[in-house]
Simulated assay, not measured.
Amino acid sequence: MPLVRISLRRGKSAAHLAALRNGIYAAMRETFNVPEDDRFILIHQHDAEEFDCDPHYLGIARSDDLVIVQITCNNSRTVAQKQAFYRCVAEKLAADPGLRPEDVFINLLETAKENWSFGNGIAQYA
């Protein structure tokens, strides 16, 4: 059950935000074997002074369109799956909404299955 948090600068259209959500969800379905309807995605928009990111870290030229994707998920994916996921997200977001691959920053936070409760005060995966 991935929990996706997308952070970006404020001012993008509803269509742009939907494309971000849909592209990331599609990539999770394709590369992480996420089941249909397992969709929990939050968007956080920030004013420019609240979004401080180095534009050249590791030699990658980032623009003001940088999108930071942080995903909390079970610790069950291989390195190959993660690499495929990163590529797939960058490709999907380049296609729609037109992000440059340099502006797609992804961070995975992996946790044990018993650390999730989907409701009713129950640890459904424990």
Rank of each mutant, 00 (worst) to 15 (best):
Leu3Phe: 15
Val4Asn: 08
Leu8Tyr: 09
Arg10Ser: 08
Gly11Lys: 02
Lys12Ser: 11
Lys12Gly: 00
Ala15Ser: 10
His16Gly: 05
His16Ser: 00
Leu17Phe: 01
Leu17His: 04
Ala18His: 11
Ala18Glu: 15
Gly23Arg: 06
Ile24His: 09
Tyr25Asp: 15
Met28Leu: 13
Glu30Pro: 03
Thr31Lys: 12
Asn33Ser: 09
Val34Lys: 06
Glu36Gly: 03
Glu36Gln: 07
Asp37Gln: 10
Arg39Asp: 12
Arg39Ser: 08
Arg39Cys: 12
Arg39Leu: 15
Phe40Thr: 07
Phe40Arg: 08
Phe40Asp: 09
Ile41Asn: 04
Ile41His: 12
Ile41Pro: 05
Leu42Ile: 15
Leu42Pro: 00
Ile43Pro: 07
His44Tyr: 12
Gln45Tyr: 00
Ala48His: 04
Glu49His: 11
Asp52Met: 13
Asp52Lys: 13
Asp54Ala: 05
Asp54Lys: 07
Pro55Asn: 09
Tyr57Glu: 13
Tyr57Trp: 10
Tyr57Phe: 15
Gly59Ala: 06
Ala61Asn: 13
Ile68Thr: 05
Gln70Leu: 02
Thr72Gln: 04
Asn74Leu: 14
Asn75Arg: 14
Asn75Leu: 11
Asn75Asp: 15
Asn75His: 13
Arg77Gln: 07
Arg77Cys: 08
Val79Cys: 04
Val79Asn: 11
Gln81Arg: 05
Lys82Val: 12
Phe85Ile: 10
Cys88Ser: 14
Cys88Ala: 13
Cys88Lys: 06
Cys88Asp: 13
Glu91His: 01
Ala94Lys: 12
Ala94Phe: 03
Ala95Glu: 13
Ala95Val: 07
Pro97Arg: 12
Pro97Gly: 12
Pro101Tyr: 00
Pro101Asp: 03
Pro101Glu: 03
Glu102Arg: 03
Asp103Glu: 08
Phe105Cys: 06
Asn107Lys: 08
Glu110Tyr: 07
Thr111Leu: 08
Thr111Pro: 00
